[in-house]
Design a protein around this nucleic acid. Structure first.
Lengths: 206, 206, 206, 206
DNA sequence: TATGAATGAGATTTCATTCAT
DNA sequence: TATGAATGAAATCTCATTCAT
């Protein structure tokens, strides 16, 4: 009945470990998280962890990769396959997506990236290539589509898809820092923001 | 009358040390900065540093306090004493202020706060009370003033002065993470954002 | 009739493993060699290796045993069965043997023995009994034979067969340490040495 | 009366630590010696040790340097300033020197060098330049002097000062490995060897 | 037999903090 | 005050060995 001391589960281990790491990093940040703690959370020995991840940094990178990529992939997929107009998409699926991020566990990753990024240039580079630039590119495509169809003015915004994202990032940080001091209705704030943007770039106010 | 070249007054020491710490934290982050390094940069011995700051955390808090407070104080002062209309102020002094932050050394402080905040609740609390809530309050006052005077609609924005700040925070982070990968004209982005906001809340479009 | 290409007979395994260990130890020394590395070189799993050798030390001892014994056995055999005079034997087969050792892979074993010996007294004891004392005894017999036949003076050397061996050991070490810095013609050095010795102990100089 | 927990003795520490390391390495070899053990023997904390020596390897190198250099220096000095003939010097001061080495603590260093050398090429290079090549050069000078004065034949030996040293090295190793199994009168062996050599290279037998 | 995933003790190294001087 | 040598408690990482499969 006692569970055996050894368990061979090569397949699942990496995922279990990154999950444990995710939660540990979330609580303490990268530097303050002890490898041993991650191992314990994963129900695994320190040694095993090092079998799958050569260094603590490696583990960190894997965490970022694992939890971020799927999100962006989904967004891009959506943008590419939608048959909505650009405006409808922004006010609909994109808004929903933007609102969900600050409340998902992934919100922690910004903090990790912000904290550790400057000391891990390759991670930042990877993140740039695989997440940021791809995401922005997809948004730009969306905006261009809106301009072409006459829905949006050919004005400033296409230069700044960043603006669409700024309040999302802001919300992610807020939730982690000041949630205790003052709740912020991030859903509403983000909705408000998108509304402002749409107001400003639409050719006709609906 | 001339003071001896090498005499430093006691009173300067803490400031010299926090300045050194600021630059060290900026480069490496909190955890990766060694107390010894800070002392060296300040041209002071480790022992002396500990005379002024009981722990490394203490030093950290002092850094945040020293570099942030003056900025907010100035902003608040401006808001309170200005005789501009709310719209003029936002498009003028506030915009200038918002644009300057991401390019000043102070931008580093967000990173520090984001990284270390969750492990230093008292610091976050202090920051909230002395910086965030005061800043937001001042902005809200400004907006209320605009509404009262009929310049702004009595609508959404007064609930979200946060929105005004989001792109500034976004810019601060961007500059630290992705500057190498892709420059972002933060001045323009921030200006654009304020314009959007004003467009949306003004009673008459100018 | 042809045996299947990939079938290895059990009996070969230990030999394959010690061979692999030999080469690994040669490159890195005992402490720095990982058991896993030995297993990989032998094309065998770690587990299997442990089936044949209870510990890493065990493996080490086996290596020494396997590679040294044959050499000494051959030398002794030669001494016992030769019909040369002692002088002829020393200047002939023994010289050849002595010259060959520092160039053979076996030279590595001195290094291993020197490095690890003091921590493995039983290994040293074994080595003493099976290699050193037997070798020295054989040499002494040879010298005694030379003295009896009147070829050698009944003088000092019979007390020091060690002297015959010293330059061989020296050469083995040199080749491992200073080969890169300066080549040494060990063949010539050893030949020279034997000549000196013979010059000194022969009753008549030829 | 209780000795203070802290003792400031910057000057003496390195020497104390290398001495402790010497004795620890002597007993266990490099790999098997724990830094903590060295610190304990030196009556010092692990941390302090790392203040003076950046890594365990560093410490090792310092040990070799400290204990070997003086010996060679002394020998060279002697050779250069002596007014003895080459033969007298070899049979006198050099013999004495050669006999003393295998009995001094320095004998351990050969073992260390042999064990670790192959993994520390820079150490070997240093050793070569500062010890081996200088020592051999000095001996060669001595032999040349003997040849010029007609004391020695212009024959082989000047190519092999190595031979003079071989039995010394052999003795150093023997003492460490087989002392327990069989004592060897290294003094006598070395004397014997020098005698053989002199016999062979002198123009006239005295 | 045979594998290699898993363990866990322990090694090196770092660094905030203390305190003799 | 002022110094920086000295401490010691961790933290990361390694690897011989075990054992479920």
């Amino acid at each position: 009945m006692a569970k055996p001391r050894f368990q061979r589960r090569k397949e699942d281990r990496p995922a279990e470990i990154t999950a444990a790491a995710m939660s540990a990093f979330a609580e303490k940040g990268f530097a303050a998280t002890k490898v041993e703690d991650v191992a314990r959370r994963a129900g695994v020995s320190k040694g095993l962890l090092y079998l799958y991840f050569k260094t603590k940094e490696d583990l960190f990178k894997a965490v970022i990769r694992n939890f971020v990529s799927p999100k962006v992939d989904a967004l891009i997929e959506n943008i590419e396959t939608t048959d909505m107009t650009a405006g409808e998409f922004l006010a609909g699926p994109f808004l929903k997506f933007a609102q969900s991020i600050p409340k998902s566990p992934a919100r922690i990753l910004v903090r990790l990236l912000v904290s550790e990024g400057p000391r891990h240039p390759d991670l930042v580079a990877w993140y740039w290539e695989n997440v940021v630039s791809r995401g922005l590119e997809a948004l730009r495509t969306l905006l261009v589509k809106g301009v072409r169809s006459g829905e949006f003015r050919p004005s400033a915004l296409d230069n700044f898809p960043h603006l669409l994202v700024a309040p999302v990032v802001f919300s992610m940080l807020w939730k982690q820092l000041f949630e205790d001091q003052a709740t912020l209705d991030t859903d509403r704030m983000i909705a408000q923001h998108i509304e402002f943007v749409l107001d400003s770039i639409r050719t006709t106010s609906s």
